[in-house]
Design a protein around this nucleic acid. Structure first.
Lengths: 229, 229
DNA sequence: GACTCATTGATTGTCTAACAAGTGTGCACG
DNA sequence: CGTGCACACTTGTTAGACAATCAATGAGTC
């Protein structure tokens, strides 16, 4: 039994709650998300639960075929490569334009500071500020549609992350340093170098994620640029 | 009364038909898309019509607030700029990567040939092959997500086009020539030049569309590069 | 004993009917 | 002439029901 949610729309509330439960790792691809079960757990009618499920299917977080039960989307190595390719397309172009304005978004600076302040806690604590850093870059261009597209991609990244949360494929120190360097390059107006570094940055995250998911990691998994010490 | 549609799913069929009617210009932002009316016209129940409407809202083709009737989305000058900015982000990065492979997609070549073969008919006849040209470029990278994002953008572009179909803001000869030059640059491996030309190409289309929608056209509306004789 | 096919249960797709809640409009009243 | 109220319209949500389909189990056959 789940507490009754109330907001602008019941479907909205259920969708949001389900999404959070997806990101928290509570819902896995193994559990069946029956319309009736969800309806019962939220104390709503079946069509309401159905609508929430269909929205999440539209977002790519749930999968379901005709007449089949919805399940959490399974994102394999090729899906991760696809997601990060799309990320790279958007982000590398964006850093080029930000560099042209010699602009380092304050939100990104703040998010990276959070990463620097991280004590050696759970690896999961790194994910949120990391996402916020990249999201701040996108936000800085102020495009509604680019924002929406990127947010959709990051939703899927979040979903991946929850599946491999135990492995510490992320090194806060390195990530902070690379973010810092990107910000410096933005302020310096060197878009080409910033785009190149970002490509490395994303490439490494991508290949390590691929490896953690059972795929074969490409060469980008290694630390290419000697940034530290 | 509308003929009963039948396909994999009734909601799918209605969504597709509504989308086509949107692109055909039959449905305008002035007409109210009531759930009951749509349900009656397709001989289905209201929840079915509701689901179709909500899908199109999710695609950005329809707009509707809470407890308000759905209407065709109105895309003003700023929306057009936003759409074309996102297009530019995706496409310029893509031509860079295609150029690295010295690859000119056959689909794009074919689509551009169609443009060349156009007799002086309706300006609308240019839209489909033009869209197919750009879509072929995106297709060539073979990314599911990039494809979906781009297709969503082009849906909105199509919607815009139907609103200004009378004006002939597109010159087939110039468009064909620019496409041709882009393809040549791709084969030559000059990604930077191809991206630059594509930016001009999109920028001109963007500003003319903006002007046609009542906005103030930017300098990109003029023909910058002397491509033709 | 293994394989094929039919039956069963579960789940979704769709419908009918209805009530509640919100929005907007028009009319009556001050 | 302006304000407020009542009404119609529309959407949000619910309940219950039936058909179609999918997965799995069981029976029957070779």
């Amino acid at each position: 039994m789940r507490i009754p949610v109330a907001a602008t729309s019941i479907v909205d509330a259920i969708t949001t709650d389900l999404r959070n439960r997806l990101f928290s790792g509570e819902l896995t691809p193994e559990v069946a998300l029956t319309e009736t079960e969800i309806a019962a757990s939220y104390n709503v009618a079946r069509p309401t639960a159905k609508a929430a499920i269909e929205r999440l299917v539209g977002e790519g977080l749930l999968m379901r075929g005709l007449h089949k039960t919805a399940r959490v989307a399974v994102l394999g190595p090729d899906a991760v490569r696809d997601i990060y390719l799309a990320r790279a397309y958007l982000e590398s172009e964006i850093v080029r334009r930000l560099a042209a304005q010699k602009l380092a978004p304050t939100g990104a600076v703040a998010a990276n500071q959070e990463i620097a302040n991280l004590t050696a806690g759970s690896p999961m604590d790194l994910i949120e500020p990391d996402i916020r850093f990249h999201l701040s870059l996108i936000d800085a261009v102020g495009s509604e549609r680019v924002n929406k597209m990127y947010q959709s991609l990051m939703s899927e990244v979040r979903l991946c992350m929850t599946r491999v949360q135990s492995l510490n494929l992320l090194e806060p120190g390195l990530i902070h340093a690379e973010h810092q360097r990107i910000l410096e390059l933005l302020e310096a107006g060197d878009g080409e170098a910033a785009a190149q570094l970002l490509d490395d940055h994303l490439g490494r995250a991508r290949e390590r994620l691929v490896a953690a998911l059972g795929g074969e990691a490409g060469p980008q998994a290694a630390i290419a640029t000697p940034l530290l010490g």
